[in-house]
Amino acid sequence: MKEQELIDLIEKHVKYEEGSIEVYAPRKLKFILKKDDLVDTLLFLKRNGFVQLSFITCVDWIKDNKFELVYGLVSWEHKLTVLVKTFIDRDNPKMISIMDIWPTAKYYEQEINEFFGVYFEGNPNMSKELILENWDSMPPLRKDFDPQSYSNEKFEIRIYDYKMEDKKKK
């Protein structure tokens, strides 16, 4: 399938946000959806050849008070990759889990939950530790998490004991 054919297909069947469909590189497309249209669209794409979910990830747009969720789908059959994106509120962020469509989603969602604090409804692993153990601060990939001050607080700064005089070239 050519990029344009997919665009036509999507335009016919899917409601995406005005003007946001884009071929950003050969065989690679991206488009932005309303949150509520997301699941239907993903299902539609899966039925149309996009059998592989490559990843789900999240971007923190703290200035706009939004999280952007990005779903990367691959169709080997059509030789196309698409990024399906949606924005959700940053306060009390929620999304429906898609692990019934792609079981792998379970862990991607769990990771996003852990690192951004987005809650995926229907995923049993929410609030379960995956990577972080005994984490006691805000989800660390949020933009307002400052790793430097966290580490200053948690770890001692090592001071080396040397003098410039001793080291100086004679």
């Binding site: 080396y160 040397y162 080291k167």
Partner: peptide, 12 residues
Amino acid sequence: DANDFIYIPDEE
């Protein structure tokens, strides 16, 4: 000595 690994590069 870990301190020796702090080094002021010179020509030597």
